[in-house]
Amino acid sequence: MDALQLLVAGVSQGCVYGLIALGFVLIYKATEVVNFAQGELMMIGAFIAYTFINILAWPYFYGVLATLLSMAVIGVVLERLLIRPMLGEPPFAVLMLTIGLGFLLRAVAGAIWGAEPKTLSTPYASDVLQLGEIIVGYGNLAIVLGTGVLCLALFLFFRYSRLGIAMQAASQNQLAAVYSGIPVARLVTGVWAVSALIAAIAGVLVAPVSLIDPQIGFIGVKAFAAAIVGGFGSLPGAMVGGLLIGIAEQFAGLYLPPGFSDVTAYIILLVMLFVRPQGIFASMMQKKV
């Protein structure tokens, strides 16, 4: 039963990684930019939810709605201020920029909300669901459900909607996309808004089960490992990678000496890069000259 309980915890943790990884993959898929600040966006989302729900005492539902809206706006603002001037620069430069952005956001969050950990209060988080001998917190259940729904929505969006297909076209060949009448610059803004929205959802779901402080953005690095394990640029891959790392971490924490649980994600990542660098769901081809 121990193993099953660990599995449940692992799935829940893995969904968190998967959620953040989804944000990475979304931006990467649409703009070929790697947004290293995705974890920090999640952290900001959690803090904004905390502000609305705990400090301003709004009802949970409206608080979450306001959080999603403000995060979408933040996504647009970030894109217009920082990413738009970098349009057409090498991807490495943009990667560096988002690393800088991550540090900046952490300092901003520290300045506004302070360094002490906070908890987001929700109507459901303190209850648990008893399934036979396994105990599942509603907070964890919400993470799993929310992730599932979001995954499905994104999959449908990229598969069937005009906007989603336009985004993929823009990522494969910007010039051709411009010629086909796709407003690439506006599209990129939209992608950042959606990606910040996903970060906000991750933040709102994670905040009740773990404490919020400016440092939680660092789990973005593990989520990044998840995205790569799954094959960068693949939405199902991001989820599978996240789940794999989440579950492996829980088991490593129990069965391996201390310290291993922290590096499990990276060991899996390195092994994956040795064995199958393109990830579980490959989407890359050999680069041409």
Binding site: G88, S171, K288
Partner: peptide, 10 residues
Amino acid sequence: KQFLRTERLR
């Protein structure tokens, strides 16, 4: 500035 092109299939 250069336009982005990738060799991705999906």
